[in-house]
């Protein structure tokens, strides 16, 4: 993988007052690659991807996506790269007041205002088919189970056919079986659309299934990198914590 990474995080710093969440974090994500960032709760994983999508401003460092430095972008430019980056929220963030269809249409209409009704419908159904929930199209999010909501959320992320998908703890709050299903779905999606994934998680099962490469985020830095198997062999107290 010698080509230029599509997402390149360099020397990223972020602190909240005295609390230094990220200190000198760097990461490269190449096309078609799937990297998991493994870390404890509160270790700044969510902060990391929120900086990538521009929801938070890092205090220092650069985030290059498609050759643009995210912290420097204005709202219009941010919108342009956000079309190409999908974001799966930890709590799904489905709009409670809208049906599943409206939820899926929402990013579509927002980003491409000139999309025709016909193609919107097709895209919605296609996205739902990918996650296997075609029949829920006219239901409200509150009528769905946790796993279904997660799938719908993935469908909403997929509908714009992004180049990168950022997963924020995709299996948290789900039972292990559903978690595995979701993880497999993530792999399917990646293969089908040839996307790159950045997965934030502390769930080893998920990481095992969905990620090619794992970055350990400990004390705000990329403490260790490698495949899951490689990491398991590292003899370090802080790394070992995750595999006990």
């Amino acid at each position: 993988m010698s080509e230029k990474p599509i997402l390149e995080i360099k020397n990223l710093y972020k602190w909240f007052g005295e609390n230094h969440v990220l200190t000198d974090f760097s990461l490269d994500l190449h096309k078609g690659e799937s990297i998991a960032v493994l870390g404890k709760s509160g270790s700044g994983k969510s902060v990391l991807i929120k900086c990538v999508i521009g929801l938070m401003q890092p205090d220092k460092g650069s985030i290059n996506v498609f050759d643009l430095n995210v912290p420097d972008l204005n709202d219009q430019e941010l919108d342009k790269i956000r079309v190409r980056i999908g974001f799966l929220f930890q709590s799904n963030a489905l709009y409670d007041s809208m049906t599943v269809r409206e939820n899926l249409e929402f990013p579509l209409r927002r980003h491409w205002l000139d999309t025709k009704k016909q193609s919107v419908d097709e895209l919605v159904m296609e996205a739902l088919e990918n996650v296997g929930l075609k029949e829920t199209v006219d239901m409200m999010p509150s009528e769905l189970s946790g796993g279904m909501r997660k799938r719908i959320s993935i469908a909403r992320t997929l509908i714009l056919k992004p180049d990168i998908i950022l997963y924020d703890e995709p299996t948290t709050g789900l039972d292990p079986i559903t978690g595995k299903e979701i993880s497999r779905l993530m792999v399917d999606v990646q293969k089908k659309y040839n996307t790159s994934s950045l997965i934030i998680s502390h769930d080893l099962n998920c990481v095992n299934i969905a990620a090619d490469k794992v970055v350990m985020l400990i004390e705000g830095r990329n403490y260790a990198e490698g495949t899951l198997e490689e990491l398991k062999k590292i003899d370090d107290k802080k790394v070992k914590q995750f595999f006990e």
Partner: peptide
């Protein structure tokens, strides 16, 4: 909406 990140989701969706 804030708590369940719907507001963030909107921002990410170009709104």
């Amino acid at each position: 909406m804030r708590v369940t990140e719907q507001i963030d989701a909107m921002e990410v969706s170009g709104t």
